[in-house]
Simulated assay, not measured.
Amino acid sequence: MTNLTRRHFVAAGAATMLAACGNGVNQNGGSTIDARVASTLSFMYDTYPGTRDLGQKAAGVLVMPLVTELGLGLGGSYGRGALQINGSTVDYYSAASGSAGLQIGAQQYSHVLFFMTQNALADFRASMGWAAGADLEYVAADQGDVLRAETITSLSPVIAVVFAQTGLRIGATLEGTKYTRIIP
Rank of each mutant, 00 (worst) to 15 (best):
V112S: 12
S97L: 03
S97P: 01
T68N: 14
M64N: 09
K57F: 05
Y179G: 01
A82M: 07
L18S: 12
Q103K: 09
V146I: 11
M17D: 08
L74V: 15
Q27E: 10
A160N: 07
L70R: 01
D142F: 02
G30S: 13
R6F: 11
S88T: 11
A82L: 00
Y78Q: 08
T51Q: 00
L41R: 14
D142C: 03
N26V: 04
L74I: 15
Q165A: 12
A140P: 00
F115Q: 03
P184K: 06
A15Y: 08
F114I: 02
V162K: 06
T16I: 07
G87W: 08
Q165G: 08
G129W: 01
M1D: 05
R52D: 07
T153F: 12
A35I: 07
A140K: 00
G105E: 05
A160W: 08
E69P: 06
T68W: 15
G75P: 03
V37L: 05
A38G: 14
P157L: 06
A95V: 12
G75N: 05
I33M: 02
Y93T: 10
G50W: 08
R181W: 02
G105N: 01
G73T: 15
Q118R: 05
T117E: 00
Y179V: 02
R169M: 13
F163R: 12
I183G: 11
S97H: 03
R36H: 10
G79L: 07
T117C: 07
S127A: 13
S39N: 10
C21M: 13
L74S: 11
T177E: 12
Q107L: 13
G55W: 04
G167W: 07
N26F: 03
M128H: 09
N23G: 13
G105M: 02
M128S: 13
D135C: 02
W130T: 02
E69G: 10
E69T: 11
G87Y: 05
V90T: 13
L18V: 08
T151F: 14
G22C: 10
M17T: 06
D135K: 04
